[in-house]
């Protein structure tokens, strides 16, 4: 499914948090949103999923306005994984993931729903945690479970808010591999906010660099992740080299 954002603006009170954002996400691609803190990465993701209501602008899904859909229909098309999940009351891992079936079920859980959840747990390699309590697990495991919840929604677009920010490198790679597999196997489109420029570079088809509430530049990783752009957007001097699979590798040196 192709996602297009047209001239989207969002604000709290008088201040705008996002101004005139337009961007396209092609089916089966991974788009990373990068930029300094407060540039509006998370806000943009929430606006796309209508968790926040944009002030202006439209989100199109395969050319159809997302705003015309009911929130339930929208939730069958888009899955959202928050930055961190905090549960006040503890559920088992299976129950947490099963919540992702909410858009598809009435009150009764069908055998099919249970099967989808179990399959997804296996797909993510976390089936052994099924009856464990969510709050007993580590950060990396929690992140996978939160992703599993979004995956069982069977969405065509997956929105991830800094999916790797609190994980060790192994878990970072595991999570990103899951994303990669989803894109390859199910032609899902992914939009994710990323802090780690190198992970963004390594896994994205397109990098969108945000600065001061707007898009500074976007394109393939090599064209976006340049020392000049990084200096202008982050205020950081850096070296960019050619890394694995010809992806740019960013070594930040010092703030200017």
């Amino acid at each position: 499914m192709k996602l297009s954002v047209k001239e989207l603006s969002f604000g709290y009170g008088n201040a705008n948090a996002l101004e005139d954002i337009s961007l396209d996400v092609d089916e089966g691609t991974i788009v990373s949103l990068v930029g300094p803190n407060g540039a509006g990465k998370s806000t943009l993701i929430k606006c796309i999923d209508r968790i926040l209501k944009p002030r202006k602008g439209t989100v199109f899904l395969d050319g159809k306005q997302a705003a015309m859909l009911t929130s339930r229909d929208l939730s069958k098309m888009m899955g959202y994984v928050p930055q961190s999940t905090h549960e006040v009351f503890t559920y088992t891992v299976f129950d947490v993931v099963l919540m992702g079936r909410r858009p598809h079920i009435g009150w009764r859980v069908s055998a099919n729903d249970v099967k989808i959840v179990a399959k997804t747990l296996r797909f993510l390699g976390i089936e052994r945690f099924a009856s464990r309590y969510f709050d007993e697990l580590s950060g990396g495991e929690k992140q996978k479970i939160a992703m599993a919840r979004a995956i069982v929604q069977e969405p065509e677009i997956l929105l991830l808010d800094e999916p790797t920010s609190s994980l060790d490198i192994r878990h970072q790679l595991e999570v990103m591999n899951i994303v990669k597999r989803l894109v390859l196997q199910r032609r899902i489109s992914v939009v994710m906010a990323m802090h780690d420029l190198n992970l963004a570079s390594r896994f994205s088809d397109k990098v969108v660099m945000l600065k001061d509430r707007g898009i500074y530049t976007m394109g393939n990783p090599a064209s976006v992740l340049t020392p000049a752009n990084i200096e202008n957007v982050y205020g950081v001097r850096s070296e960019v080299r050619n890394g694995h699979m010809d992806r740019p590798y960013v070594m930040p040196i010092e703030p200017i």
């Binding site: 069958k76 899955g79 009351f89 129950d95 919540m99």
Partner: peptide, 14 residues
């Protein structure tokens, strides 16, 4: 149940 995971997740679940 969904709201237990937070308002944003609940909202994204429709």
């Amino acid at each position: 149940n969904a709201m237990g995971a937070g308002e944003e997740v609940a909202s994204s679940l429709g």
